[in-house]
């Protein structure tokens, strides 16, 4: 077990280092100069003043040093939990800005991922049993899973938000409220959460339902199922076994899908102007805020790695074969 976890940890560490390096590189090779764009927003017209301010800010952000030096100081800052200072929200530290946005993104993502996975699997398994459901769920599921998140989001915003007027279409909570711990605020938070959640949930649901339906059919035709049936086992028992076996690829699928889901959540946030990481990425991109962009991606990378790690551990729990392998079975 520990060797398994250790090996996994090593792989994750390597992934982390590579991801962080790429993450550091990309904004620096983008066209545009963060300091210049910050100053051009300030509309400094005097060229001498501009020159002096550019030097000053380059020093503040450490952009006057050579690239290797910047890279090293980035790592040393990172290990101290210092992600630098944002140029867009100068002079606020990047970490504070991100921590403000993270709850919104997590509050969307976790329920959407977990609920869609659980309900999608149950529903897919159920659909595999019924001819009528199978004929309807399958096509609908295919359409849903092929739907781009933001497109569905726009559709939902238009139908449930603008035409029906049931849900608000923008923001994390009503623009007429100050954040506090009251029933009014929490209900506003919830009603603003519903549409972005739904657009993530519905798309993911289709994918899981199809996957599960296919797996169940495959498992029911496997030898062990036929054997059990020949022994006269009740159909419910066979289905239970089939379901447990079919879950395994679905869990792997969850790990693989995580990245796509997060990217989808980021786009969905932009559609609903939801104050999470996605909206933050867009605005930091627009104002060439390297440091913030870097910080957000770092958070996303860490999030994906942690989630994958959790799934790895869960896998050990539910698949006895991996445990046998770890205790020196065949490898």
């Amino acid at each position: 077990m520990w060797r398994y976890i250790g090996r996994k940890l090593f792989v994750y560490l390597l992934t982390f280092i590579v991801a962080v390096t790429i993450n550091w590189m990309i904004p620096r090779f983008m066209p545009g100069d963060p300091v210049r764009s910050m100053l051009s927003r300030a509309q400094v017209s005097n060229p001498e003043a501009l020159e002096r301010m550019t030097t000053y800010y380059n020093e503040v952000f450490g952009l006057d040093r050579s690239l290797p030096q910047q890279y090293l100081s980035f790592w040393s800052g990172l290990l101290r939990g210092d992600l630098g200072i944002s140029t867009m929200l100068y002079p606020e530290p990047v970490l504070d800005i991100i921590l403000r946005a993270v709850p919104y993104t997590l509050g969307l993502l976790l329920p959407a991922i977990l609920l869609s996975w659980i309900i999608g699997n149950r529903f897919g398994a159920f659909a595999a049993r019924s001819k009528v459901l199978d004929n309807t769920v399958l096509p609908v599921g295919y359409v849903l899973t092929a739907t781009p998140y933001m497109w569905l989001a726009l559709l939902l915003a238009w139908s449930l938000g603008i035409v029906a007027g049931v849900f608000p279409v923008a923001g994390g909570y009503s623009y007429s409220l100050r954040p506090d711990f009251s029933w009014m605020f929490i209900s506003s938070l919830l009603s603003h959460w519903v549409l972005p959640f739904l657009s993530l949930f519905i798309v993911a649901l289709g994918g899981w339902a199809i996957g599960m339906r296919n797996m169940i059919i495959y498992e029911l035709e496997a030898d062990y199922a036929n054997y059990l049936q020949a022994l006269g086992a009740p159909r419910r028992l066979i289905r239970r076994y089939a379901f447990r076996n079919a879950m395994l690829p679905q869990i792997t699928g969850l790990a693989v899908q995580l990245g796509t889901l997060i990217a989808g959540a980021l786009l969905t946030e932009i559609v609903f102007n939801y104050p999470g990481l996605g909206t933050l990425i867009l605005s930091s991109l627009n104002s060439r805020d390297f440091f913030l962009l870097q910080g957000i991606f770092l958070f996303v990378v860490i999030g994906v790695l942690i989630a994958n790690f959790i799934i790895d551990i869960v896998y050990v729990l539910i698949d006895p074969r991996t445990r046998v392998q770890m205790t020196g079975g065949s490898s």
């Binding site: 709850p103 954040p179 506090d180 605020f185």
Partner: peptide, 16 residues
């Protein structure tokens, strides 16, 4: 990972 979810502590006095 979830801790802090929902809490947005810029704590002005409540109200609409």
């Amino acid at each position: 990972a979830c801790s802090g979810d929902g809490g947005d502590g810029s704590g002005a006095s409540g109200g609409q």
